[in-house]
C-alpha cells in the first residue's frame, strides 16, 4: 500500500490539539513564572558572601542540571508519593517539575548576568551610601535583567518543549493529546506533524516577541 498524506486529517487534528495546547501553555507559564523566582533566588544565593547559601545553591543547581528531566518527573510523580503518602495531581506535578528544572538553569542565567555588570556600578552605589540590597535592587538588577532576556527567552523555548516529556506522568498536554488522536485514527504521520507544527508556531512566536522586547528596551535607554 502506498502512503498518501491525508490533508483533511492534518487540518482536523489541529483544532483537536487545542485542548492539549491549553495545558502546555498553563504548565509552561506557571512553571517558568515559579522557575524565574526560584532562579532569581538561587542565582543570587550563589553570589552570597557566606559559604552556606552558596553551597545550597550549588547543590540545587548541580542536582537538577545533572539529572534528566524525565527522571525528575518520574521521581516526583511516582517516587515521592511512596515516601510521603500523598499523590500530586498531574497538572500540579507538571508545573512543579518545569519550575524546579528551569529554576536551576535560570539561576545560572541570573548569576552570570549579575556578575557581568561592571563592579564600578556596585562601587558607585555603595559610595552614595546605598546598602548592598538597595544597590542590587536599584542599580545591578535592572541592568542585569536586560542582559538576562536573550538567555531567558532561550530557556522559555526549551521549557515549552520540555513539557512534552510530562506525557509520561499523564498530563494531557499537547503531545499526549496527539497520541490519543493517533490511537483512534492511526494517522501517526499527519497527527505528529500537526503536533510539531503547533510547537514550532509557538517557539517562533516567542523568539519574535523577545526580539521586539529587546529592541524596545534598547530604545528606552538610547532614545
Amino acid at each position: 500500500m502506498e502512503f498518501q498524506f491525508d490533508w483533511p486529517v492534518f487540518f482536523e487534528t489541529i483544532p483537536m490539539l487545542m485542548r492539549g495546547l491549553k495545558f502546555t501553555i498553563i504548565i509552561t507559564l506557571g512553571g517558568l513564572g515559579a522557575g524565574f523566582l526560584l532562579g532569581a533566588f538561587f542565582g543570587l544565593m550563589k553570589l552570597a558572601r557566606h559559604a552556606i547559601p552558596r553551597t545550597l545553591a550549588i547543590i540545587y543547581i548541580e542536582a537538577i542540571r545533572g539529572t534528566p528531566m524525565l527522571v525528575q518527573a518520574m521521581f516526583l510523580y511516582y517516587g515521592l508519593p511512596m515516601a510521603l503518602g500523598l499523590r500530586i495531581p498531574p497538572l500540579t506535578a507538571g508545573i512543579i517539575i518545569i519550575a524546579v528544572n528551569s529554576g536551576a538553569y535560570i539561576a545560572e542565567i541570573v548569576r552570570g548576568s549579575v556578575q557581568s555588570i561592571d563592579p564600578g556600578q556596585a562601587e558607585a552605589g555603595r559610595s552614595i551610601g546605598l546598602t548592598r540590597g538597595k544597590t542590587m535592587l536599584y542599580i545591578i538588577w535592572p541592568q542585569a535583567f536586560k542582559r538576562m532576556i536573550p538567555p531567558l527567552g532561550n530557556q522559555f523555548i526549551i521549557s515549552l518543549k520540555d513539557t512534552s516529556l510530562l506525557m509520561v506522568i499523564g498530563v494531557g498536554e499537547l503531545l499526549r493529546t496527539g497520541q490519543e488522536i493517533v490511537a483512534v485514527s492511526y494517522k501517526a504521520f499527519e497527527v505528529y506533524l500537526a503536533v510539531a507544527v503547533v510547537y514550532l508556531v509557538m517557539t517562533l512566536s516567542i523568539a519574535r516577541g523577545l526580539r521586539i522586547l529587546e529592541n524596545h528596551l534598547e530604545m528606552k535607554t538610547k532614545r
Binding site: D118, E123, A124, G125, R126, S127, I128, G129, P142
Partner: peptide, 20 residues
C-alpha cells in the same frame, strides 16, 4: 559604613554613572 559614605562622597576615574 553606609552613613560614613554619605559623609565622604566619591568620584571615580570611569565616572560609574548609572546607565539605565
Amino acid at each position: 559604613i553606609n552613613h560614613v559614605r554619605t559623609e565622604a562622597g566619591m568620584v571615580f576615574q570611569q565616572f560609574n554613572l548609572f546607565p539605565h
